[in-house]
Amino acid sequence: MAGKTYDVIIIGAGAAGLTAAIYTMRKQLRTVVVSPETGGATALSNWVENYPGAKAMPGLELMEQFKAQVTALGTPLVATKVKGITPGVTFRVALENGETISGRALIITAGKVPRRLNVPGEDKFFGRGVSTCATCDGPLFKGKPIAIVGGGNAAVEAALELAEIAKPVYLIHRRDTFRADEITVAKLKTSAVQLVLGSEVTAVHGDRFLNGLTVRDQAGTIRELSVNGLFLEIGSDTDPVLVAPFAKNDANEILVDARQRTNIPGAFAAGDVTDVAYKQTVISAGDGAQAALEAHRFLTVPGYHWPKQ
């Protein structure tokens, strides 16, 4: 089915995508933003204190201001997921709502999603004890046994926070040392958190709801932990469907040059989906603007040269 054709299709509606839309709309480019939700990772942040020019506020509130600016420009927002991207002279983007749209340029700003363990039972008990949002679901486990998986700041901070609510709290980590800041790790020693180090979760089980985990240590010893909650704090990944056509680094992030160009002419990327060193709202916004301005040059400057990567 032949769908609508745009100058620019922006996939993702966090800080990078919404900023890109402001810039492409102001350049009079026919723009569409495709994203199942708006606000990206910033919207899920409880408190943002480092976005210059704005007072400290909940991430969602900041992103609502971004969105208001985008909608005031008349930008169409399509609330659906992308099923596939086919590069060509024009990019064809298949949407989950059944439509296929075309764009002369593409800006990928779809960020990342929380990483999963990929062990048996995880999908079955997701939302029935297994969670990727400790701040959301932790308080629902008052006085109950739970486990957190991970070794970074997010995991250790979640364990410390949940130790005030749930009991007992296990922190399961593949290695024997933590990547988290020393000051945070030091707090673990005086907390009620029980450390399960050098160990991996190999299966999760229950009946209607989660009631246990199988954990294997480096020596191969298997043990069972009785828990009602399992919180995954093991990082995040890009969406494989969206990054598939592009050159990527080892972390599956899209490689971009200093002007947000990918290896495919006409396709740009910005924000957490790229190999940018720092995943920050202000950087995503800046890179989104840069992607939009460069997309405008790509579409309007005769003989625009796409550098080989």
Binding site: E37, T38, G39, A43, L44, S45, N46, P58, G59, L60, E64, A79, C133, T135, C136, D137, P139
Partner: peptide, 14 residues
């Protein structure tokens, strides 16, 4: 929903 849950606040306007 609950007030401490950020995705709940994203869900609300939807």
């Amino acid at each position: 929903w609950a007030p401490w849950c950020a995705p709940c606040r994203v869900q609300h306007p939807i």
